[in-house]
Write a protein that binds this DNA or RNA. Structure first.
Lengths: 335, 335
DNA sequence: ATGAAAGCGCTAACAG
DNA sequence: CTGTTAGCGCTTTCAT
C-alpha cells in the first residue's frame, strides 16, 4: 500500500496554525498563551485527531500515564481478579496498566520491576512473592511504589496495603481446632521459593500455640499444580484430617483431587482456602475461605499511588483485616 | 537520598571505553565492529548493568519488545485465563504485555488500541467485542495485529484465530433439543453493545432451524451482572426450561441465582456455558460448556504475531473447533 | 505572548 | 572498522 500514515505531531499543528512548536506545546496544555490561541490550537488538534505521543513524553522525562502492575503469579485466580480490580480502578483515574507476571519466581520479580521502570511507568504496584528478592531501594527511589500484601526489602514506598496474615491464619487455625482437627496439612505455593514469609511463619507459631500438628507442604499454584500433590498427601496412611490451602486456587485443585479419590468433603477431609475468590461460594462444596476485600485492596493501592503522584503525601498504609467465611468445606474432624 | 541514580546510558559506556556512541551501539548488537571491541564493550556494559532504554528505542522507531493485549472484558473469567495464557506464551519469546480492557464497550476498543499503538507495542492481540468498532485499517496497517475469536472491520491482519462459533452454538442447541428443551433463554453480554455478532446470528438461525423458542437476553458480564437478570428470567410465568449462557462467567451468576431461588439444576432448569473455564468442572453442579482450547488459542495467536515480526509470513489463520463438555448442569427438560 | 534551541537515549545514513 | 551528524516528538530554559 501507500506510505504509512503516521500519527499527527505537534509540528504539524504548528505548521497548520502558523505558530511555533513551543507555542503549540503550551497551548495544548492550556499554559501561558492567550485564550484565543488555545482555542485555535485545540481546534486544529481535534481535527487532526492529535494526542501527545506518550513515548516522546516519556523520553523527555514526563508522565506516561501508565502504571506497572507486578503480580506473583497470574496462574492464581485471585491474582487474576486483583489484576482486573486494579485495572478497573486505574481506569477511573485515566491510567493504564503494564502487566508483568513473575510466575512464582522471586528472582524474576526484581528484573521485571526493572523492565517496568525502564518503560517509564509512572508508578509501580507490586504484589510480592516473598522477601527473597534483591535490592529494591534503587528502583523504588526513582519509581513510586506501592506494595500489596507483601514486603519489599529495603524499598522506599509510596504506600503499602498490608494483609493481616497473622490474624487470617489465626482465624483458620482456631476454626479448624474448634472442629477437632489436630493433624493439618498446609499447602503453600511460596514455601519453596521464599521459605520465610510472614504467612508461613504465622502458621508455624500459631500451630505450636494450639498444639496442632501442622506440616507445610510446598505446592505449585493452580489447579493442575495442586491436584497431584493433593492426591499424594491424601493417599498417606496418616492422612491429615484437614487441608489448609494458602490460596483458593490451590484449594480448587485439592477439591478436584478429593473428587477423584472419592473422598467426601468435609466428611473425610476438611478444606480451607485463603483468599475467597468469587467462585469459592459456587464450587462443590462451597469453600471455607478467608476474605480480604479485593475492592478495598485495589482502591487503596491505586489511591496511594495517585495521591503520591498528585501532591506529595508521605508514605500511606492500610491494614486489611481478614474475614473468615465459613462455608461447607470445613466440618468436624473425622474419626 | 541524594541525586537520583539514573540508569546507565550508551554514552557512559562510550566514555568508559573511549569509543563513540555509534561504535558502542553497534558493538552491543554485535554488528560490524571487531570482536575485541565487542568484548570490551560488553564487559563495561555488564559492569554498569546496562540495558538498552526501551523508550529511546521506541522513539527512534525500533522494537519495544512489548505486545499489546486488548480484551473485551477482564470481568470475564475466561478472558482472565486468556490473558494469563497469552502472557505466559509471550514470555517464552522474551516479550512483554501491555494489557488493556475495553470493559465491554466496543467504542472504547479502538481508542484503547490506539493508545497501545502509541506506546509503540510491536504488535497487537485483540479479542474483539464485536463488529461494531470504527476503522481499524489505519491502525493495523502500522501495527501487526492478530485477532482472537472475533473480527475487526477493515483490518489488515497478521493472523487470526477463529472460533467456529456456528459449530459451537449448534452443538449446544442440538444437545438441548435432544434433551427435550424447546423454550430457551440465551444470555449474551454482547447483544446490547454489538447486536450483530456472528454468535448471536448463529443462535437465531439455528434456533429457527430446530424450531426452538430462543429469546436472546442482553446481560452484563460477571457474576454480579448475570445473577439479578437470572432471577428475573427465572421468576417468569413461562420460564424457559434451559438457559444457554454465552460465557461461563454468566453461567456462574445464573447458577448462583438458581441457588437463591431454590431451583434445582438441572432438575428445574438446565444451564449451559460457552467457554469451559477451568473451574466449570468444579462448580455445583458441574457446568456443561463448550471448550475452545485456550492453550492452542494463545499459542497460535502469539505464534502468528511472532512469525510476522520475524520474517514476513503472510496472513495466517487457524480455526479452533469447539468441544462440547457435557456435565451435570444440563438434563432432560422438566415437565 | 511567542519563538529558537537544546536535549532525553538511541539508531542509521554517510563519510572516512 | 569507527566517527560525525541528524533526527524520532516532546518539553523546557532562555530570549525576544
Amino acid at each position: 500500500m501507500g506510505t504509512a500514515p503516521k500519527r499527527p505531531t505537534i509540528k504539524q499543528i504548528a505548521e497548520e496554525t502558523g505558530l511555533s512548536v513551543t507555542a503549540v506545546s503550551y497551548a495544548l496544555r492550556g499554559e501561558r498563551v492567550s485564550a484565543a490561541t488555545i482555542a485555535r490550537v485545540q481546534a486544529v488538534a481535534d481535527e487532526l485527531g492529535y494526542s501527545a505521543d506518550p513515548v516522546a513524553r516519556a523520553l523527555r522525562g514526563g508522565r506516561t500515564g501508565t502504571i506497572g502492575l507486578l503480580v506473583g503469579s497470574l496462574a492464581d485466580f485471585w491474582q487474576q481478579t486483583l489484576a482486573h480490580a486494579v485495572q478497573r480502578e486505574l481506569r477511573t483515574h485515566g491510567l493504564h496498566v503494564l502487566l508483568a507476571d513473575a510466575d512464582g519466581d522471586p528472582a524474576e520479580e526484581l528484573a521485571l520491576a526493572g523492565r517496568l521502570a525502564a518503560q517509564r511507568v509512572d508508578g509501580l504496584l507490586v504484589a510480592p512473592i516473598g522477601p527473597a528478592g534483591g535490592d529494591w531501594a534503587k528502583l523504588t527511589e526513582r519509581t513510586p511504589t506501592v506494595t500489596i500484601a507483601g514486603r519489599l526489602p529495603g524499598a522506599e514506598l509510596a504506600g503499602e496495603v498490608v494483609f493481616d496474615q497473622t490474624a487470617g491464619v489465626g482465624e483458620v487455625l482456631r476454626h479448624l481446632h474448634a472442629l477437632g482437627h489436630r493433624r493439618i496439612a498446609v499447602l503453600s505455593w511460596a514455601i519453596a521459593a521464599s521459605p520465610d514469609r510472614p504467612t508461613e511463619r504465622a502458621v508455624r507459631e500459631q500451630a505450636a500455640a494450639l498444639a496442632l500438628d501442622c506440616e507445610i507442604v510446598p505446592c505449585a499454584y493452580s489447579l493442575d499444580g495442586s491436584r497431584p500433590l493433593a492426591l499424594e498427601v491424601l493417599a498417606r496412611e496418616d492422612r491429615p484430617t484437614a487441608i489448609f490451602c494458602l490460596s483458593d486456587s490451590i484449594a480448587y485443585g485439592v477439591l478436584h483431587g478429593c473428587r477423584e479419590l472419592g473422598l467426601s468433603v468435609p466428611g473425610d477431609v476438611s478444606i480451607v482456602g485463603f483468599d475467597d475468590h468469587p467462585l469459592s461460594r459456587l464450587v462443590d462444596p462451597p469453600l471455607t475461605s478467608v476474605n480480604w476485600s479485593i475492592d478495598r485492596t485495589a482502591r487503596a493501592a491505586v489511591g496511594f499511588l495517585v495521591d503520591h503522584l498528585a501532591g506529595t503525601r508521605g508514605e500511606q498504609r492500610v491494614v486489611i483485616a481478614p474475614t473468615l467465611s465459613v462455608r461447607v468445606s470445613s466440618g468436624p474432624a473425622a474419626g
